[in-house]
């Protein structure tokens, strides 16, 4: 699997995508203002969470157009429900991604009813920083990853999407999915183990 080898060979420079971090105190104050009807606070929440929700949607549906629609849907639902958000239940991030999770579930149900095709990331959506050769290579690699991830059980895919695409902690992921932290960790390990088996041959290390 030469293409994965290229990915493998650049492992030393590989990092997780950077995500914008907001302190807990700032987030809490902002959410409280948003619950009281402060539109600027709502705008801040949108700006913080939109990229993460979008990544989560991409990780789950693999199609940027559908990811855009789903992201918008998530925020409209957030808007309608934020007045009911209570701090004592779950962290705000978990609450946001619980909404996102529900949107995805609904999306899959709709897609299944329509018999719609599975989607893929189009070539022209590749980050423009790369040259064409790299982009093609990257595209195929990403496609392989996507195909491999699609073969994971739903619960495992859900966990690694929230963990690796969104950057939620184990605790936040557990709250978002209504699972125990130990369960989330186990699902994460199983998912990663299966992914690496599918993507990286034993002799390719």
């Amino acid at each position: 699997m030469p293409l994965m080898t290229s990915l493998h060979s650049e492992a030393s420079s590989m990092e997780f995508p950077a995500l914008q971090a907001v302190s807990t105190e700032v987030e809490r104050a902002t959410v409280d203002r948003a619950r009281a009807g402060d539109q600027q606070a709502l705008a801040d929440i949108y700006d913080w969470y939109m990229p993460r929700v979008y990544r989560y949607a991409v990780a789950r549906v693999g199609n940027t157009h559908e990811a855009e629609d789903l992201t918008e849907e998530v925020f409209l639902k957030l808007l309608s429900a934020i007045c009911d958000f209570k701090w004592r239940d779950v962290p705000f991030s978990s609450w946001v991604f619980r909404i996102a999770h529900n949107c995805i579930v609904t999306h899959y149900r709709r897609t299944a009813q329509r018999g719609g095709p599975t989607s893929e990331i189009p070539l022209d959506m590749i980050d423009g920083r790369h040259d064409i050769a790299y982009a093609i290579e990257e595209q195929i690699t990403m496609e392989e990853v996507r195909v491999a991830a699609a073969q994971l059980p739903e619960a495992q895919r859900e966990v690694i999407a929230l963990r690796f695409a969104v950057g939620l902690s184990i605790a936040e992921t557990a709250k978002a999915l209504g699972k125990r932290e130990g369960n989330v960790k186990a699902l994460q390990h199983k998912a990663v183990a299966k992914l690496q088996k599918m993507l990286i041959p034993v002799d390719g290390k």
Binding site: M14, D127, T141, V192
Partner: peptide
């Protein structure tokens, strides 16, 4: 291989929405 697989998965989701959508959706 585990860390590479996890990173590769994270990178598949590292997409930016189109600028046009980002503006109008906001």
């Amino acid at each position: 291989p585990h860390l590479i697989a996890a990173t590769a998965f994270a990178r598949t989701a590292d997409q930016q929405p189109s600028a046009e959508w980002a503006t109008t959706a906001r």
